[in-house]
Design a protein around this nucleic acid. Structure first.
Lengths: 191, 191
DNA sequence: GTCTATAGGCAGATAGAC
DNA sequence: GTCTATCTGCCTATAGAC
């Protein structure tokens, strides 16, 4: 049936947005069903293990969205520096109006749940690793050794996460833009 | 009375630790009073406006602790690079055993409450600004222009916040240590 | 100022009709 | 598969005895 996949997708979409902005504990199932327009029974039909299962799938949903964007930029841009800077610029532009946020990395949820739910922590960690690998792969294609590329991928990932946190707190994209500026200092040209 | 200031201090200390680790929504007043060993009436006596007021003071409590540590390192070390690296090393070492955490910057709480409480957001922002200024001041003493020093202070702040987030999620201090490694690339010697 | 008991509301989760 | 009504428990907050 069509309505089945649509309702599941609708819940995931709504949950992903709310979890990104409000975090795990700050987002209630009642808010998710209210905003998605679906009844609670539908949520528990699609996610029988409740909130934790929904959050894990929401993290993966967000992660996939970001992976696609990131990979697209890696393909479009010639060098890794330009690609990473473009990704940060895109992320920063979302802070112009936070209401219709599309996809920001899952740092808030990750920090919140790292100590209380191993499955959720693993989902967040996997998301981080995927982004890291996309960056590292591009660096390797541009002459980096594998080990150094992996490390730089981790570094860029952490920096973007911190920039988002500061931009969110100050309601100002400057922190992210300052990070964007220094990327060339960290990712030097090779080969 | 002595017990008065002690009970207030005890609540703040417990609340600060729990808010840092579990966030705002993840930490209940019941847990705070249980761990601090004080009755709920005492909490509301010292913080009549409830949880939000307590969280604001807890942020300031944590912030002050970090300010003192950071300033101490700035005084001890000759150059800003060494001082910043020492601070990151100290922060990273707390991830060896998270149970008795002393002070990690307030990123989790900041992200969670940025969109729901202006007073709390302002408290977090003020904390960030104080740390930024301590770093900037040291940079100015070492030959930096004021504007550039302020920008680097913001950068270092964001990076540390992101490193903490990643270290927390991966339960591994490597992300923070990678950030520590690249500080010399970002803070070059002047004068 | 200290402490207990409890109010009032919302959370996550479930039962069961359709 | 869809939807509503409801349970249980925890949350913040308060009243009021001592």
């Amino acid at each position: 049936m069509v309505s089945k996949v649509n309702s599941r997708e609708k819940i995931l979409q709504t949950a992903s947005r709310l979890f990104q902005l409000q975090g795990y504990h700050g987002t209630g199932l009642n808010q998710i069903i209210k905003e998605s327009g679906l009844p609670k029974g539908s949520l528990y039909h699609h996610f029988p293990n409740g909130k934790e299962e929904l959050a894990i799938e929401a993290v993966q949903y967000t992660s996939k969205f970001i992976e696609e964007n990131l990979q697209k930029l890696m393909n479009e841009k010639e060098g890794p520096v330009e690609a990473i800077q473009a990704f940060i610029r895109d992320t920063a532009s979302q802070f112009d109006n936070l209401e219709d946020i599309k996809g920001i990395p899952v740092g808030l949820l990750a920090s919140e749940t790292a100590l209380i739910s191993e499955p959720l922590r693993n989902a967040c960690m996997q998301a981080f690793k995927n982004w890291q690998m996309i960056i590292a792969k591009k660096l390797i294609q541009n002459g980096y050794e594998k080990e150094e590329a992996t490390k730089k991928g981790l570094l860029v990932n952490s920096m973007i996460g911190g920039g988002i946190m500061h931009s969110l707190t100050s309601k100002d994209k400057t922190p992210l833009l300052v990070i964007m500026e220094v990327i060339p200092l960290l990712i030097e040209k090779k080969g």
